[in-house]
Amino acid sequence: MVKKIKKTLQEPSGSEEQSPDPEKGNGYWETHKKKKGTLFDVSFFYDWCKACGLCASLCPRKIILNDPLGRPYIEDMDRCSGCRFCVIHCPDFAITVKERFADRRRSTDEE
């Protein structure tokens, strides 16, 4: 657990003004509590994707980017709001948005 906190403290947080101190109750923990349960995972099925660019252009938060071949990818997955606008506008049924729960498995693997 201590390792996890240390690791999160080392990660660059979105807002630099907040002091990343878990005891004071701001910084990572506030944002994490807010985001808890509302994280989303976007997966692209590249076998069916035709790289039309609709998902990247219609994303309201502009988090879907295109690689040189035009295929979509996401760098900052935590910013996804889960609106599924890309899912209903994908003509090729190649996008799935799933709710992502806390990264329990990943943290246990690391420990």
Partner: peptide, 28 residues
């Protein structure tokens, strides 16, 4: 919902991806 549609409502023995052009509205 998207997974259910893809797994249960589409004929996977037909050749996917479909024949329509990239970005065609028919898929939507």
């Amino acid at each position: 919902e998207a997974e259910i549609i893809r797994q249960e409502y589409l004929r996977h023995d037909k050749k996917f991806p479909h024949v329509w052009c990239p970005g065609c509205g028919n898929g939507i």
